[in-house]
Amino acid sequence: MIDVLSYTCIGVGIVFWFWGTSHLIGKRSVLFKLHSLSVSDTLGSIAIIVGLLLKRPNEWPLLILAIICLAMWNTMLGYVLAYCSNSGETVNDSYER
């Protein structure tokens, strides 16, 4: 039963990865693309690590640390990328689009 749940989590994580990548093709703004990519990559990576946690429960301290680092790093990276991509515009310019 644990193996099925573990492989399901890993599969869901891979689906999230591809789902976030598929938004890069659309005609939306760069900020929307970055947001959807960073959120889906974070959720996908966390789901994969949870699947690994179910398969290797003895490694829980390292895997929990990996989940915390992923959540913090990807959140901060998303903010930095959004700021850098929007640094050439003023706030009013972005609302007029």
Rank of each mutant, 00 (worst) to 15 (best):
I46K: 03
S45E: 05
L77A: 12
G51P: 06
I68W: 02
M72S: 13
N74Q: 09
V15G: 04
N74Y: 03
S87V: 10
N86L: 06
L37G: 01
P61A: 10
L77M: 13
C69V: 12
L52Y: 13
N58K: 11
Y7S: 04
A71G: 09
V39I: 15
L31H: 07
T75A: 09
L53W: 10
L81F: 12
I2C: 02
V30N: 11
S87E: 11
Y95F: 10
W60I: 08
T90R: 01
D93I: 01
Y95L: 14
I64D: 00
G11Y: 00
A66N: 10
P61D: 11
Y95I: 08
H23L: 02
L43W: 10
A71L: 13
L65P: 02
L34Q: 09
T21H: 03
G44Q: 05
W73Y: 14
L37D: 05
L37C: 01
V30T: 14
I2F: 09
I64F: 11
T75G: 12
W73K: 13
P61L: 08
G44K: 01
R28N: 14
R56G: 03
V80H: 07
I48G: 08
R97G: 09
V15K: 01
I10L: 05
V39T: 07
F18C: 13
V91D: 12
F18R: 01
P57W: 04
G78T: 07
K55S: 14
S87Q: 14
W17H: 04
S36D: 00
I64N: 05
V30I: 14
I46C: 08
G78A: 12
N92A: 11
I10V: 13
S85H: 12
L62T: 07
T42Y: 01
T21Q: 03
G51I: 04
L37K: 02
L34R: 04
V39Q: 05
T8R: 00
Y79E: 04
S6G: 08
M76C: 13
G88Q: 05
T21C: 04
F32T: 09
S87P: 00
Y95V: 14
V4S: 08
